[in-house]
Design a protein around this nucleic acid. Sequence first.
DNA 1: TGGCTGATGGTACAGGTGTTCGATCAGTTA
DNA 2: TAACTGATCGAACACCTGTACCATCAGCCA
Lengths: 199, 199
Amino acid sequence: MTRTELTQRQQDVYTFIRDKILNRGYGPTVREIGEQFSIKSPNGVMCHLRALEKKGLITRCPNKSRAIELTEGLGGTGGLPYVGVIAAGATTLSFEQSDRIDFSEMFARDDMFVLRVAGDSMIEAQIADGDYVVLKQQKTAHVGQIVVARTPDDETTLKYWHPENGRIRLQPANSSMQPIYVPHAEVLGVLVGLVRNRF
Amino acid sequence: MTRTELTQRQQDVYTFIRDKILNRGYGPTVREIGEQFSIKSPNGVMCHLRALEKKGLITRCPNKSRAIELTEGLGGTGGLPYVGVIAAGATTLSFEQSDRIDFSEMFARDDMFVLRVAGDSMIEAQIADGDYVVLKQQKTAHVGQIVVARTPDDETTLKYWHPENGRIRLQPANSSMQPIYVPHAEVLGVLVGLVRNRF
DNA sequence: TGGCTGATGGTACAGGTGTTCGATCAGTTA
DNA sequence: TAACTGATCGAACACCTGTACCATCAGCCA
């Protein structure tokens, strides 16, 4: 959601403010923002805040400390009703008194990140073109795990992770495709989840 | 979430603080709390804040304004960093300054519900056993959409929706399975999303 | 009755904080 | 070249805010 109408600097400041509010629960002061970006004058920051407010991204309450509201909702209030398991066979759905399920809570760890999948190389693992995959950031993986790996020629790819004698086999889940063999590769993260929202 | 170890007054104060953080985006000052509860001395409020902190409900950062953190997570606040598209080929992942993606926002409509899939009848639509499917509650569907349908013998199933002359064909996405033909069926919802979190 | 806890009031102070005014400076546009 | 915009510095100011110290009072328990 990069905004062309924002300068890079404004984008940075906005992201910082949002990050503070989201992760710490309360926003930064003018001087905290300044410190973060090595802006030594409070007025330097004020200038950006005025710009962000004029462009409608934040709302401020004059003369109050830390009183920055994000115009964009924080989102994620409640989750969705979880009504049961659906099998090939009989099922009773109970909309009444159902539990709720919250996907952002499901992937709530902050060492995770999201990639969008392009291509069908993992189709037989039920990972389709356009899916969002959720990955846990780590540098090692077990044999057979699905990982995001960076190869020596600086390509990044989503594949099964198979270290072999003196090389790495990056195995697609697509029987019409061949495995990739590389002398070594860097694991960027391992697959922990998947989200799809187009049907 | 009434806590027996809290006095009524403390409970009230805590609720007020949480309400401010959740609905306004930033917490109250000591004096704002005092005004709300007609406590005329800042110290009266301090006393409650100390109590709440001692009991572990909030965390404070000394000498900072509005610096009240709720110990209990806000629930579904933030989303995850969205770092790019991963293709079979080259990709540059940018962890710096990345956008964020929030799945609970993605499925934020309140006419949606979630089911867990049992069985492999939709495997060729990349819907696997154990996946969560997100459905939009509606009574009609277009031809070829994936729906949750209830058949006359009161079974509920996830299938492709194919109305035909005088009957409904409920088509699995599994070439080893046969379609189900029923004289009529009730659409409970159409598929709009999918979430998987086991790998 | 004495001691304890929870809840407040009052006052005072130091440092945090938002804001303003004036000025510089690089890069872009007319 | 002149005008402008974005970004920033520096200093100053008034108010906001957290905090500390001291005191009161009702209710409960021993």
